[in-house]
């Protein structure tokens, strides 16, 4: 149960953190795309922003995810990192408790 909770907490928070990274990268990509007609990539090629001029002179925006792999890797790495940190933290806390009880 303890591991189930730890892993689900790590998955949830890494999902939120991944979303923050994706949204942040997307916004940065969007505002760094100054030229119309040029497809701009961000977050290791994961997200793109592509303003295009139509024949009638209007501009349309194409945007989204071009490659999910970097996002998936970020998600897995963040989750693994959090599980590792939580495990180490718990061991340190247990060690501290033992030291206090020994006093």
């Amino acid at each position: 149960m303890k591991w189930f909770l730890r892993i689900s907490a790590a998955l949830t928070s890494s999902f939120v953190l991944t979303m923050i990274v994706v949204v942040g990268s997307f916004i940065m990509t969007m505002f760094s795309a100054r030229e119309v007609g040029v497809r701009k990539f961000g977050l290791f090629g994961a997200v793109f922003f592509h303003p295009q001029e139509q024949s009638d002179g209007s501009t349309i925006l194409e945007a989204g995810v071009s490659n999910g792999a970097p996002i998936a890797i970020i998600f897995v790495l963040l989750a693994a990192f959090q599980v590792a940190v939580a495990s180490v933290l718990e061991r340190l806390k247990a060690h501290k408790r033992r030291l206090q009880e020994a006093d």
């Binding site: 939120v16 979303m19 923050i20 994706v22 949204v23 997307f26 997200v47 945007a63």
Partner: peptide, 14 residues
């Protein structure tokens, strides 16, 4: 903040 980020994020995934 979190809800808005998730909503925007899912929108990007289209």
């Amino acid at each position: 903040t979190i809800v808005m980020i998730i909503a925007l994020g899912l929108n990007i995934f289209n």
